[in-house]
Amino acid sequence: MEIFFQQVVSGLATGGIYGSVALALVMIYQATDVVNYAQGEMAMFSTYIAWTLINAGVPYWWAFFGTLVISFVGGVLLERVIIRPVESAPILTIVIVCIGLLVILNSVAGWIYSYIQKPFPSPFPPKPIMLGTVVFGAHDLGAIGVTLVVLALLYAFFRFTTLGLAMRAAAQNPVSSRLCGIRVGWMLAIGWGLAAMVGAVAGMMVAPIVFLDPNMMAGILIYAFASATLGGFTSPGGAVVGGLIVGVIENLVGTYVHFIGTELKLTVALALILIVLVFKPSGLFGRATIHRV
């Protein structure tokens, strides 16, 4: 039984990682109606910025918030320079532009920072917390906490602020929004900025666990997609819960279902995406979206 609990705890920890990246994916989908495949690499790049600041002697929390500001500006710039020209192009064009961005960011990070992995500091104490014989990493708990705080802030932002409401409107119905006087173009840019910020938080929480290197997000992004699909691409809370579920399922299946074992863990995540899309395309917590055609 001890191993069961330890695996659940360890699954929640990795699930927290998936959830935080999934949250960034959902964020940009809500704000701009596109799925950003470069989200993981943007988060990785932001984390390198934080690493640079910390190495230059900036205290952790200053570096943390400094990175958020830089990421926001960077996200807005990306939208203005790269996405804006293809804004009204077919969805496939945007997808390909995002994939191009993914490859470029990955290579540029490797070029600037090399591919040697780097340790990234955690703001939480290194001492693990023991509950009976089950070990909780303080950072794992802290990271889940930070993700929940981000989630709460996003919820409040989209629900209670004029800007948040305007952004949702701009994403869902650009034409009507424009008629109401919302500057749709800028709303999309701000959406990219915010998503870059959420990604930066995810990156800085993930890096102490998986270590910082340009390919840090490659594996995580697939699980993040599974989490976002499971929770529903329209539901930020769903994305986080989806992440935790994926993390725990993955560990338990890997430990107890022997023909799957550790070899087919990724397959479980992919199968999950498929099953959800077939039986409940909007995810566990998402709203079904209806488009008039």
Partner: peptide, 18 residues
Amino acid sequence: TYEVTDPTIDSQIVNLKN
């Protein structure tokens, strides 16, 4: 075992310790 695509190997280490 682990796959190169796995984000972490925490679960395997837990099993090995156990």
